[in-house]
Design a protein around this nucleic acid. Structure first.
Lengths: 161, 161
DNA sequence: TAAAAATACTCCATAGGTATTTTAT
DNA sequence: ATAAAATACCTATGGAGTATTTTTA
């Protein structure tokens, strides 16, 4: 089984067209034809009925389609997770914290994180809450930790709009 | 993501050895090294710690291993199912039936099956129950349908031993 | 005749193998 | 000294593209 072919098959089945799948995948139409042909040979069965200039999934094709959906989704998830792991090995993160929290609570947390993910450069910015909020507005922080104060809520709502 | 690489990775992780994985997969050891290297480059992260002449999964490697397990299992299942579909497209089947059942019940069933799976050659053998049983013993039938008669049970038990 | 798939052909990238070197036990 | 992984080098298979032909609506 070849993921690349499976992906092509999936698009062809969805589009009900070799040509449209080719466009969607940014490859040539003959490339798609050959990939499907190759799959049909490997499996030893027909995946699409070529009826006139339409194509239609065979029974086998339909079964494969349903299983392909699951496989491709799982593969996609795996790739996302690996992408996330990469950031934990070589990423960088800027943490903002208000004065009190930053000085009294964050230090051990940051140290612990640095031990666990030595490849990640972490920067802790300790500033008054309102300054932190401005940086959050301007997307200068990856994460910010501030005390829970009623007035904050309105600012956050403004940011999230 | 490449399926063959994932499979190789899985075997290496299981065997904790490039060389043993290579043997298991019937490819050369350098081929395994390159596949792992290629994966590490694509993901942008290290999958194995090369500690001395031992190898050990990294954190990322462990995550990948767990997801690979699921993917490979699903792919295996898919391939089995496709193998089964192939038999429904081009297989052959020999059905044995006792005289009464064969003459009165099987005909419409067989006709229906032939319509649904025109690629499968089906042969219906109608014979007295005891003859059918002998053929079952000798593995000459893919399936046999006979009346439920007490004495049969002992014969079937004998066959299944 | 127009649109879609199949075929023909050429080319290149990738994957594999063998041989060898490096590294650590 | 040995066993395992990495590196170097070569080869070949397969997969891609462009151009063209076939088929049918």
């Amino acid at each position: 089984m070849d993921f690349y072919q499976l992906k092509t098959f999936y698009h062809v089945a969805k589009q009900k067209s070799f040509t449209r799948a080719a466009n969607e995948l940014s490859i040539s139409q003959p490339a798609v034809s050959r990939q499907i042909e190759s799959m049909e040979q490997k499996f030893g069965l027909t995946l699409f009925h070529r009826v006139g200039r339409e194509i239609k999934l065979t029974d086998s094709g339909l079964v494969l389609f349903e299983m392909a959906e699951k496989i491709l989704s799982l593969v996609g998830k795996t790739e996302s997770v690996m992408e996330g792991m990469k950031n934990l090995e070589s990423g960088s993160i800027v943490v903002g914290a208000s004065t009190t929290i930053g000085n009294y609570l964050m230090a051990p947390i940051v140290i612990n994180f640095m031990k666990k993910y030595p490849g990640v450069s972490i920067k802790l910015e300790i500033q008054p809450t309102d300054e932190i909020l401005i940086k959050v507005k301007n997307n200068l922080l990856d994460i910010a930790i501030i005390p829970e104060v009623p007035v904050i809520t309105s600012v956050i709502n403004e940011i999230l709009l």
